[in-house]
């Protein structure tokens, strides 16, 4: 594999992912409607019900809208990554995954290219949401648009790697609904995306512990701190470690030694 070949292949995989995304207007709309519903509708109700004390990285009392924005950025990334996983399962069902796996490049590199492509699409959606939240009047430092970028990329990579692993393990497209119920919703609700962990701890020590063990919590905290120009060391460590483990497992799951499920109708 030469660097030029690798770069051209990466470019091809990213271009395909972007072309597919831009050709699906409903996917773009759906990715923004979900978090905006939380921000505009749910946050209005939660603002009155939830009292938020001063917690890191905030220097003063904040409104619920300000608290929830990093969690909703995480939500956008989470759904985009799972959408990427869904499209991989779809590609496998439809056969187009074979075109990728047949390229004369190491399979881990091909999976990495897919990871990068999903991440670019996910981060673009997260920025579209952030811009709308900013225009809606949610207050965070303007520099946050820049400082949040590495955190958003790392979080998206981690979630895309988990999605990649899931796409190898899900045997049929029809099973993807189960992923929504057993992966996406628990990952989102059992995290610090919607409420601070101390608030959860007041209700249940056990659930708070589960939230702390959830890598998505750490991805959200990484984003939250980065939005204010700070680094959450624990979030960085957990997100990076989860990315490494999930990607290694995905490479194992897609290894030719384990076999690529033959298409329907083959012998």
């Amino acid at each position: 594999m030469t660097p030029v070949h690798a770069l051209r292949a990466l470019n091809g995989v990213v271009a395909r992912e972007l072309a597919r995304f831009l050709g699906q207007y409903t996917r773009l709309a759906g990715s923004l409607v979900r978090p905006l519903l939380w921000l505009v509708v749910f946050a209005a109700g939660f603002r009155a019900a939830l009292g938020l004390s001063i917690t890191e990285p905030y220097q003063t009392y904040i409104t619920y809208e300000i608290y929830v924005v990093p969690g909703l950025v995480g939500m956008v990334l989470l759904f985009a990554a799972m959408q990427g996983a869904l499209s991989m399962v779809f590609d496998r069902e439809m056969g187009s995954m074979r075109v990728l796996l047949l390229a004369p490049l190491p399979r881990p590199f091909l999976l990495f290219a897919k990871l990068v492509a999903i991440t670019i699409v996910a981060v673009a959606q997260a920025y579209a949401f952030l811009a709308i939240a900013w225009l809606w009047g949610v207050d965070f430092p303007a520099a946050g648009f820049l400082t949040v970028l590495p955190a958003a990329i790392l979080a998206a990579l981690m979630l895309a790697a988990v999605g990649l692993l899931l796409s190898a393990l899900i045997k049929q497209l029809e099973n993807f609904a189960g992923v929504m119920n057993f992966i996406i919703f628990p990952a989102f609700f059992l995290s610090s995306a919607l409420y601070p962990l101390w608030k959860m701890q007041e209700s249940s020590e056990a659930l708070a512990l589960v939230c702390r063990l959830n890598p998505f919590t750490h991805a959200v905290e990484l984003i939250r701190f980065a939005l204010y120009g700070r680094v959450d060391a624990l979030g960085l460590a957990v997100t990076t470690a989860t990315l490494a483990i999930a990607f290694a497992l995905a490479c194992w799951a897609y290894d030719p030694g384990r076999g690529f499920r033959p298409a329907r109708g083959g012998d």
Partner: peptide
């Protein structure tokens, strides 16, 4: 099994393959 991406153009499908090679 057909392996073309139905939602991309003919050229986009071919370009994807040339990039991978």
């Amino acid at each position: 099994q057909p392996t073309l991406d139905l939602d991309l153009t003919v050229t986009a499908n071919l370009r994807y393959s040339t990039a991978l090679h």
